[in-house]
């Protein structure tokens, strides 16, 4: 039996109906048209579906949609401020930190969660902070550099 859920996504009040066993990722993608979060594995092993739930980085494939009642969610679709890209988004483009781009939304969200808590991370902290996100194209080199550049820019701003 479907359940009605009221929640906040990227600052907007959102109501949706879902099955009680339906993962949040499926709700976002199939019911709300928010396809920025990707399913790379569905088991919490790749991070492509990363979102920030009440301030904590989580895999949306490992959250039930029904748990969202009264919660606050941030997704990649809410990262830019109107036409102005978030520094992480701009640095990923400028630094060629994406190749195929399928993992990019998850990395941006994970990097944002990292920088929200630690504005000046070391290379090692970045690497471990992003270890839950798999990228198969880049070898992570340019991703780490883009996060370093964005962190620097954000500290300066």
């Amino acid at each position: 039996m479907s359940v009605k859920v009221s929640t906040t996504i990227n600052g907007d009040a959102v109501d949706f109906v879902c099955q009680p066993d339906e993962p949040l990722l499926d709700v976002l993608r199939n019911r709300l048209g928010l396809t920025g979060a990707k399913e790379g594995c569905g088991t919490g092993d790749c991070g492509a579906c990363s979102v920030i739930l009440d301030g904590r980085l989580v895999c949306s494939c490992l959250v039930l949609g029904v748990e969202m009642e009264g919660k606050k969610l941030e997704t990649v679709e809410g990262l830019a401020d109107g036409p102005k890209l978030h520094p992480l988004q701009q640095q990923f483009i400028d630094g060629a930190a994406l190749q195929c781009g399928i993992c990019t939304p998850g990395f941006l969200i994970a990097a944002k969660a990292l920088l929200d808590k630690n504005p000046d991370p070391s290379e090692e902290e970045i690497r471990f902070g992003l270890a839950g996100n798999l990228c198969r194209c880049t070898g992570y080199d340019k991703i780490v550099r883009a996060v370093q550049a964005a962190a620097k820019e954000m500290r300066g701003a």
């Binding site: 990649v76 679709e77 701009q90 483009i93 994406l98 990019t104 939304p105």
Partner: peptide, 21 residues
């Protein structure tokens, strides 16, 4: 030269459409 890729913005905003999208 190291120009910006034309699909960059779509891919950092979640708008790019992949197979399952």
């Amino acid at each position: 030269t190291r120009v910006r890729r034309p699909d960059g913005i779509d891919k950092v905003t979640g708008r790019a459409k992949y197979g399952a999208d």
